[in-house]
Design a protein around this nucleic acid. Sequence first.
DNA 1: TTCATTAGCAACCTCCTGGTTGCCAGTTAG
DNA 2: CTAACTGGCAACCAGGAGGTTGCTAATGAA
Lengths: 121, 121
Amino acid sequence: MASPRSSRVDRKVAEAASIFAALGDETRLRIVTRLCRSGPQSIVRLTEGSRVTRQAVTKHLHALSEAGLVRGERVGRETVWELEPRRLAEVRRYLDIISAQWDEAIGRLRTFVESPPSKPS
Amino acid sequence: MASPRSSRVDRKVAEAASIFAALGDETRLRIVTRLCRSGPQSIVRLTEGSRVTRQAVTKHLHALSEAGLVRGERVGRETVWELEPRRLAEVRRYLDIISAQWDEAIGRLRTFVESPPSKPS
DNA sequence: TTCATTAGCAACCTCCTGGTTGCCAGTTAG
DNA sequence: CTAACTGGCAACCAGGAGGTTGCTAATGAA
């Protein structure tokens, strides 16, 4: 039943890590938050109010895009970037799962402490 | 009503970003996952099966600790590290909130497209 | 006491990341 | 056509992150 040397799980972890890494930069998370709040926007609009250069914003958008968190479409002379909510959902599910596992583990630990495995002393 | 130059929100974002960043490394996420699955463990046990050195694991544990995701307690000659589930919960809530905002934004966009603001042509 | 285990600390190295500036190309408006 | 706007690309730089090795200190078992 157990996979021989992991692999499916490994890839899952790696992918989740890449998504978290994408969200793990303040500028980037701010961009994502903004896209969530105000919907699809062009680069200049995303740059307005940001403390970094347009180039920096562009770089971050590409990083987010590589993580699958965001998708850009060229319309006219501007590129409109919008969120890819499925990736966000994936990562939410990941957190839910490991949280549940933690609760389970804590439960096991508690019953273990309450009834140690045949060790009278 | 709106805060003068953000700040509360800024700090929120920064904190969330730091947590995501902590989770955004494969080795680190693997450690967290492992702590979730198997409960509190010492460093050597965490290192077993890992592809990196004990020192690396230690470093990552400290990184996770600084993000508030994990807490270590010295017991006897070993240090037992365990998860801090509240931080995980925080970040889950963050994702839930921005996801909800996205849904809202998309809703607004849709009604906007369906009834443009007085532009007949 | 003596030895094995567990962990902490420090130095070191390489590579990636976030950011900037500068320049060029496509697109739209006058 | 020309000017203004929007965006892509490349070079460059400083700093930090991940990892390793080597050594030392505390603790526990024999």
